[in-house]
Every structure is written in C-alpha cells, then in structure tokens.
Nucleic acid binder design. Structure first.
Lengths: 150, 150
DNA sequence: GTACATGCAAACGGTTTGCATATCT
DNA sequence: AGATATGCAAACCGTTTGCATGTAC
C-alpha cells in the first residue's frame, strides 16, 4: 500500500482518468523531497517518460490541488507543492540566504492562529504557511564575519 | 518636513543622484496606500510625468530597498513595497478570497518569533511577514451560503 | 465512440537587461 | 567632463492557453 493509494481513489471518485502521466507525476511528488518546485517534479517525472510536457505537469498539479491530493506551499516566488498528509500537517521556515526550507510543527502555531481568529476573525490558511528568515547555519556564518564585515 | 525627508538624506549619503523620477516614485509610495504593487506605484508616479518607464520604477524600487528606504512585502505573487517605518513596523494578513491586505501589529508575533529563535535558531524576517487566510467578510459570506453549498 | 487528456507551440504578464541618449553633480 | 540614470525595446522566465491528436473509459 503506497503513500498515494488514497490519491488514486480520489481521482477515480471524481471521474478523472488515470493516465500514465498523472501516475508518474504523483509518484514524483510522493517520492521526492518535501515541497518540490514544479521544475523538480517535471525533471523527476520526465526521467521515466521523456515526452512529458511541462504544461501537463502544471495542469496535473492544479488538478491534484483541487482534489486535495497535493498542497500548494508558498515557499518562494514560484509554485511549490507537496503531498497532502492531514495526519502530519506542517508548515515551513525558509532561509532567504541559502534557500533551504525547514518543516515547522503546527504546535508552534496553534496559539497564533487562535489569536488571529479571536481578535480579527481572520482564519489563517496554515496549510500554506511560511515564514522567511535566516536559518541557524546562515545566521552563525554571518557572525563569523565579525562586526567589521557588517 | 515630509515623511520621506530621511530618504533623501539617505540617497545623498550613498552618492545616488536625486532625479525627478526618483522623487516622484518616492512621493507615490509615501502618499499612496500601504503595501503598493509596482503597477500602482507606476500609475501614480506617471500621472505627474508621463514619460516615466516601468523599468525605471523597478530599478528605483530595488535601489530604495537596498537603501532601506522601502520594505518589500511578500503579499502576493507580485512585488509589493511600502515606505520603511521602523517606528511602526507591522506585518500583513492577506485574504486569499478577496485579495485584501490587513496590517498586523508586531505585538502578535513577539512570542512566535522568540520561540522560533530559541528552539531552532531561526531568525524570522518579520519585516517581510505575511499570513494568508480568509478575512472576516469573506469568512462570513461563505457561511451565509449555508451547509448545502459546501 | 466520445469525452477528456496530452503534446506542441505560441501567448502572456511580471520583471530584467542592453544600449544609446540624456542628465545630475 | 564624467559617471550615472533614463527611456525604449527586446529578452527572460515561469505559467497558461489554443488546438489538433491521442487515449482512457
């Protein structure tokens, strides 16, 4: 029972066709690193089927997002997706120096969410939540340059 | 003493030229609404000087950002800027339904920031912080549709 | 057989760049 | 005078779309 068998059921249920391209893209996302860029998904999937077109990847990812199979992640200025996993919902910290993305447990956001909801009636979309900043490594690297290098 | 006199000093100090275009763009940002898109800045500034080119706006905004005169805001998929005001630093909540952006006082983020810093050594870049979600109006509008409309 | 998905190529929109000209200092 | 900023046009890059062909059902 693979990680994405539920996704296949979802496709059938909605009357969508199970094309080889869709399966490839699904596998690419399921097996690839977390929060993948479209180009990354494309490269991976194309390894198994060189005729695959970017347009298909975009269309498929949009379909998957609408079905709830993948989640869009607001990581950079380009689109990123990851397999939706309600049991392990998490968020991201993105280092703007080195570009790395780190997962962040929802635990750290519960209180924040509740506050926004209570005070402003604003329901944060935490499935798509990202904080940018500086990660430990890049932070310490900066310090090594010393106060002179600014 | 206008809101942006400090900015002019900053420009001179860094040896940058005070061209009419730059002044116009600065004024457009200072007088316009918070977190303006590039096109909005462009339209406003061009009202006073129709020959103004978008490229100049982009170049100028980047310069201003590097000088710290404006702050880049990660509001949508396009670039947004606002006049940097250290005394009234704030963040944003963006409604993904209607697109409106609301200011969010740093008060609500202090604790969150401290936690990330302490636990992960991750220094969030809160000058560029944005939560997406659903605002009060769009949230209640959804409810009005009732449980049937899903 | 028919509706839907794909590949291909071309369009699109925001942003950037090369270059000759104009302008600030 | 000399360096730098501008306008213009064209490149760029990620993403989307139109259309004829192909394929899952």
């Amino acid at each position: 029972m693979s990680k994405h068998s539920g996704a296949l059921k979802e496709l059938r249920a909605k009357g969508c066709r199970l094309t080889p391209q869709r399966l490839l893209i699904l596998e690419a996302i399921a097996e690839g690193s977390a929060h993948m860029g479209v180009d990354e998904v494309f490269r991976r999937a194309r390894e198994s089927y060189p005729y695959l077109d970017v347009a298909t990847v975009y269309r498929t990812l949009r379909l998957f997002r609408e079905l709830g199979v993948v989640t869009e992640v607001g990581i950079a200025d380009r689109l990123h997706f990851e397999l939706t996993d309600p049991a392990a919902r998490h968020h991201h910290m993105v280092c703007k120096v080195c570009g790395s993305a780190f997962d962040l447990s929802p635990y750290y956001l519960e209180q924040f969410r509740e506050t926004l909801s209570r005070e402003f009636g604003f329901e944060p979309d935490l499935g798509n939540f990202t904080v940018t900043g500086t990660c430990v490594r890049c932070g310490s690297r900066k310090e090594l340059r010393g106060p002179i290098g600014n």
